[in-house]
Simulated assay, not measured.
Amino acid sequence: MGVSVVPIAVFTIFWAIVGIVLPFVVPKGPNRGIFQVVLMLTAATCWLFWLCCYMAQMNPLIGPRLSNHTVLLIAREWGDPLKTG
């Protein structure tokens, strides 16, 4: 799996709207500053979490664990039988 620009761009634009545009739309009130900070921090942390999860799938550190029987069965079914013994 390689890098695709489309999902990165879509999610970056979405979280940029949440973190940059929406704080300007918060209605005036005594807690306006808190709501603005909450929106900005939420956008930043959610985007960073999503990016880390997306990048972790590109080159996983742990692969599937297969038993010897499963490996031999897969090799036989794919037409490249392994020599045992």
Results as ranks from 00 to 15, higher is better:
L41Y: 12
G63M: 13
P27S: 14
A44N: 05
I20Y: 04
V25S: 10
P27I: 10
L22E: 00
F24H: 12
R65F: 12
R32W: 06
C46I: 03
N59F: 09
M40F: 06
S67E: 09
Q57I: 11
T45P: 01
C53F: 11
M55D: 05
V71F: 08
W50N: 01
A43G: 02
V25I: 15
A43N: 01
G63P: 01
V38W: 07
V18G: 00
T70H: 08
M55S: 06
G33F: 08
V18Y: 02
L51T: 00
M55I: 09
M55A: 09
V37S: 11
V25Q: 10
P60S: 08
C53I: 10
F35S: 03
W47L: 04
S67L: 06
C52H: 07
I20A: 08
K28W: 12
L72A: 12
L48G: 06
T45A: 05
G29A: 11
C53T: 13
N31Q: 12
C46Y: 01
W47P: 00
L22S: 01
H69A: 15
M58F: 09
G29V: 14
M40D: 00
P23M: 08
C46D: 00
L51W: 00
P27R: 13
F49Q: 08
I62K: 13
T42D: 04
L72M: 14
V38M: 15
L22A: 03
F24W: 11
V21T: 03
L51S: 02
Y54F: 14
M40N: 03
L48D: 04
I62Q: 13
Y54S: 04
L22T: 01
G63Y: 08
A43I: 01
M40W: 03
A56G: 12
K28I: 09
I20W: 05
V37M: 13
P60T: 09
T42Y: 06
M55P: 02
V37H: 05
N59T: 13
I20E: 06
M40A: 08
Q57V: 13
G29W: 05
M58C: 06
L39D: 01
L22D: 00
P60W: 06
N31G: 07
M40S: 04
N68Y: 06
G63V: 10
R32T: 10
P30N: 11
L73D: 15
L22R: 02
P64H: 07
I17Y: 04
R32C: 09
W50L: 04
C52L: 14
Q57M: 14
I34E: 07
G19R: 01
L48Y: 05
P60M: 09
P23F: 03
F24I: 05
L66A: 13
V26K: 02
L48P: 00
M55F: 11
G29R: 06
I20C: 08
F24G: 10
Q57S: 14
P64W: 04
L61M: 13
L72E: 07
R65K: 15
V25W: 10
L61Q: 12
P64G: 03
R32N: 07
W47M: 03
L39P: 00
L66V: 11
G33V: 08
C52R: 08
T42F: 11
A56D: 13
A43W: 01
F35V: 05
G63N: 10
V71K: 14
S67F: 04
I34N: 08
V37F: 09
I34W: 12
L48T: 12
I34C: 07
L73Q: 15
Q57L: 14
V71T: 11
H69C: 07
V37I: 15
V38H: 12
Y54Q: 04
I17V: 06
C52W: 09
G19Y: 01
